[in-house]
Simulated scan of single mutants.
Amino acid sequence: MASTAQQAGYLLVNELFGPTFQGEGPSCGQRAAFVRLADCNLACTWCDSRHSWDWRRHDQAAETRRLTVESTATQLLALGTELVVITGGEPLLQAEAITDLAAMLRAAGRRIEVETNGTIPPPPELTDLVGQFNVSPKLRNAGLGSRPIDAAALTAFAANGKAVFKFVVCGADDAAQIAALQDAYGLHPVWVMPQATSADEVIAGMRQLADTALEHGWNLTGRLHILLWGDQRGR
């Protein structure tokens, strides 16, 4: 869970990798470099990156590095991709530092996406620099009890014009929850994706979701990295 103590000029990094492909959402298939930041303010039961925050199961010292923002930017730029994705964990726990990182990346001509669970409003300075927020509000299927929905954060994302909303779907009743959130907060565009960690599960899940997505006017995404490399870290 969240334990990041922000230090000016530094990021708590879990892993940095690429070049690879963005595996989900509207930028799926585009070449990208990724920096995965450590710590999260949620604890989803199906999370596929528990190594970035679950310090009961993973060794925090082995899984984290405190890097300067400048060093992080230099390493990402060296990977030579137009798109840089800042993910987690929950990146907005380190909002001040990722704003500085985004400024360096933008100055070098990079396009930036931030992947977030949508519970922390982004600062205006970061919003100005980011090309796209990939916001993934959590449904009851995440096993968090009452849905961890932050009304102010979702409203801010919906209003900034740079957010897409991606929902992980596990079962038939998830569609009603997504539709209710869409209506309540004006979420658009909406992408839906099956919860899956193998190629067979991705394909089967997309087939099950296809008609529901079409019926509701939603976009459908798979998980390209899973189809290509399975549940392999750093791809």
Rank of each mutant, 00 (worst) to 15 (best):
M206I: 05
L126Q: 08
L83H: 10
A8H: 13
S27H: 10
L42W: 00
F17W: 14
L11I: 07
V169G: 01
V69T: 04
Q6D: 12
V168Y: 02
D59Q: 04
R140H: 08
A33N: 13
L11R: 09
I178H: 00
P123L: 03
D39W: 04
G230K: 07
Q195D: 14
V35N: 07
S27I: 03
G205M: 03
L16Y: 07
Y185R: 04
L92S: 09
G118K: 02
C47L: 03
T4E: 06
G9Q: 13
D48H: 04
Q7R: 15
W53E: 10
G186C: 08
D211S: 15
D200K: 06
L79C: 13
P189L: 06
S49F: 05
A78G: 11
D54S: 01
V192L: 07
D173L: 10
L79Y: 06
I149C: 04
L126Y: 05
P124M: 09
W53I: 04
I178T: 03
A156E: 08
E201P: 01
Q208P: 00
G161R: 11
Q6S: 12
E24Q: 11
D100I: 00
N134I: 14
N160I: 10
D100P: 01
A62M: 06
R50H: 03
R57A: 14
P137Q: 08
A179V: 07
A97P: 10
A61P: 01
R56N: 13
Q132E: 08
M104D: 10
V190E: 01
T64V: 09
A62S: 12
R66N: 08
G205Y: 04
F34R: 09
V130A: 09
R65N: 10
V69K: 06
G222D: 04
A8Y: 11
D39L: 07
A102P: 12
T45D: 10
R110L: 12
D54Y: 00
G25V: 01
E82C: 00
L67K: 04
S146L: 14
T221C: 01
L224F: 10
L76W: 10
A102Q: 01
V69F: 13
A156S: 15
V84A: 09
L77D: 14
Y185I: 09
L77A: 14
H188W: 13
F165M: 05
A184K: 14
R66V: 07
L214A: 15
H58S: 02
S3M: 00
A204Y: 00
G143N: 07
E90S: 06
A95F: 08
T221S: 15
G143S: 13
A159S: 15
G131Y: 00
Q7K: 15
L92F: 09
A213I: 11
L105I: 12
L92R: 07
T64K: 05
M193A: 02
V13W: 00
G186P: 12
S27P: 00
K138Q: 08
Q22T: 07
L12N: 08
V69C: 03
T87C: 05
D173E: 15
F157G: 11
V169M: 15
A8W: 03
E215T: 14
T87P: 05
I149S: 11
N219F: 14
R147S: 09
